[in-house]
Design a protein around this nucleic acid. Structure first.
Length: 293
DNA sequence: CCGCGGGCCTGAGAGC
DNA sequence: TGCTCTCAGGCCCGCG
């Protein structure tokens, strides 16, 4: 499921009930996620409080009072749902007892804030891992990640430099977490359409031979930032599994310009093209062959 | 270094 | 109704 906007939506939902709260009880119903949970997973969390819930790329990072960091990834189908205890009922929320815990709720956090947080992941391609804070910089999952696209430091100079000399396609380059961290199949397609760039174009073509950004690089960076901001604003995109932590759907899927719109007219003003689906590096790419060059 | 394909999993939807 | 096939928002690994 989740790309940067979905993960950020989840982070914003979880932060109010996790930050400053303590794990009073942790249930690991299934430990065989993408990688097995450590045997002492629950014990290492129980009693610890969450000092901060952050995000890096598509990873959620909970800084714990123990000096460890809980790294969480939603894989393709992971989601978190918050249930509030009876007594602090808010309309539209799920409550204890109303849906106790369902088939794919593999991990459940009970927090001192009163919230019960369930991690649901049908395909079990998600993961959780505990590492020492001091080891975070050398953590293999995070070490090679490229810049955060919404940070100031992500600009056309940086992107052009990273794409310099790359003969691989723009689509593949933007999907590569080492070049820019957090984009996935949807937002790469959407950003390229907004930037009017063909997904088939060589990545190197956004840079001059010496690695300086050209106009295409400027367009692309603006498009990436714009689409991610808009998607976060909309609470992410709900196709199959993504939900906000209160169970509500995200809204951004209604704003897709190309993703999953093969055969439909290009939404760009005055463009008479038809959205096409092709396969690149084993994944569907959607684009308008007329206005994306 | 690079691209590609396979693998990890389950479930939804299409077609027969 | 039920079977089979394909595909899905991610990412790691090994091959050539």
């Amino acid at each position: 499921m989740p790309e940067l906007p979905e993960v950020e939506t989840v982070r914003r939902g979880l932060a109010p009930v996790m930050q400053g709260a303590r794990f009073t009880k942790v249930e690991a119903h299934r430990g065989d996620l993408r990688w097995p949970l450590p045997k002492d997973f629950a014990q290492r969390l129980e009693g610890q409080s969450v000092e901060k819930l952050g995000r890096r790329a598509k990873y959620l990072l909970a800084d714990l009072s123990s000096g460890e960091v809980l790294i969480m990834h939603l894989g393709m189908s992971g989601s978190f749902r918050i249930a509030q205890p009876q007594g602090v009922q808010t309309p539209g929320r799920y409550y204890y007892g109303q849906s106790s815990h369902s088939l794919h709720d593999h991990v459940v956090f009970h927090m001192s804030s009163g919230a019960r947080i369930s991690f649901n992941d049908p395909r079990r391609l998600g993961m959780m891992k505990l590492v020492r804070q001091a080891d975070l910089a050398s953590e293999p999952l995070l070490r090679a990640l490229g810049p955060e696209p919404l940070d100031r430091e992500f600009n056309s100079t940086v992107l052009a430099h990273l794409c310099r000399g790359k003969r691989t396609s723009l689509k593949a380059a933007l999907s590569d977490q080492r070049i820019v961290a957090g984009l996935g199949n949807i937002y790469v397609c959407e950003a390229l359409h907004r930037a009017r760039l063909s997904p088939r174009r060589p990545a190197s073509s956004i840079a001059t031979r010496s690695g300086r950004p050209n106009q295409r690089a400027d367009m692309l960076v603006d498009a990436i930032k714009a689409v991610l901001r808009a998607a976060i604003e909309a609470g992410g995109s709900s196709l199959r599994n993504h939900r906000r932590t209160d169970g509500a759907l995200g809204d951004f899927q209604h704003n897709f310009r190309v993703y999953d719109r093969a055969g439909k007219p290009c939404p760009r003003r005055n463009c008479r093209g038809t959205i096409k689906r092709i396969v690149q590096t084993g994944r569907s790419t959607f684009f308008c062959p007329l206005c994306q060059n």
